[in-house]
Amino acid sequence: MSQPLIIGTSYTAEIEDAERRINVVPPAGYDAGEAAHPLVVVLDGGLAQDFFLALGMERWNQLWQRSAPAIFVGVETVDRQRELLPPTRNAEEQERYPTAGNSAAVRAWLADTVLPLLRSEYRTDGRAYLIGESAAGHFVVETWAQTPGLFDGYAALSPSLQWDDQSLSRRVAGAEAENSPPLFLSLADEGGATEEGILRLAAGSKACLADRRGDVVHATTLHRLLPEALQFLLPTGADWLAEYGLKLNCTPLPDGDEAQ
């Protein structure tokens, strides 16, 4: 006997002259209950991208109560540089990524189309969190800086802050509003201008920096840091996490919070 394995729902939305899949998986017990949950929006969340990896880690977190239950949302990208990065004045980047530069349109699409769709289809508690890695991490930082109220918290994993000669970190470091939403920021072995941009942003903001230059490479950033980013954004207060090595390790932590 066999039956389909159904884990969620996939919606189609169009932007940039192409269809995008919005893949949604509610938390365990959602259909049988009445509880409302926050949205966790992961960029590069197509089925052929980071969807299954990110979803698996998010569900593993819930098994350990490392992060609170959430409605997991994977947003597919098609041309990552076009969709996730702003224009650049750097000639080498322009030549390598000639389509790049439309992040503002995608941000408006998230605000005007994707979030309203999700809130109309699911029991949300009003909160939403945005997570991205590499170029998507740049998009996260840019969103946090330019439209901070769009999401309630942000996680930028090894963001590509070398882009446009580090203009984003130069522009926003130390200039964010006092009540900016929480930002989890991570740094792996990127070095060079990427490292400079991330450290500048961390020094000039209240971001909680997970500095893993010694043991994480760029290719494993999502694998290693997503569980911790979720723990930062959606803490549970479970008192056994440190005993099992599930300690939040970023600095500085928000005022009044302690690593679990």
Rank of each mutant, 00 (worst) to 15 (best):
F184I: 04
F232L: 02
W144T: 06
F184D: 00
L63A: 12
R89Q: 15
L168G: 06
T221S: 14
F52H: 13
E178L: 14
D44Q: 00
T88M: 05
G46R: 07
V73F: 04
Q166D: 13
G137E: 02
R119L: 06
L157S: 01
A28Y: 08
P159I: 08
E83Y: 04
S10C: 13
L241C: 04
L199S: 04
V78S: 06
D125S: 08
F151G: 03
Q3A: 15
G45N: 01
G204E: 02
E121F: 03
E76A: 15
P159T: 10
Q81S: 14
P252D: 07
Q81R: 14
A238K: 11
H223S: 13
S134E: 01
E58W: 05
F232I: 04
W240N: 13
I131R: 01
V141L: 13
F72T: 00
A18I: 12
R119D: 11
G153M: 05
A193T: 13
S120P: 00
A210Q: 09
D189Q: 04
P159M: 10
P86T: 09
H223R: 15
L130K: 03
Y122R: 06
G29R: 02
A100F: 03
L117W: 07
A28C: 05
R171D: 12
Q3V: 10
F184M: 09
N23A: 05
E142K: 12
Q65N: 14
A28R: 12
D152P: 02
L47R: 11
G214S: 15
P148F: 08
F72R: 02
E190Y: 01
G74K: 02
S169W: 04
R59M: 08
R66C: 03
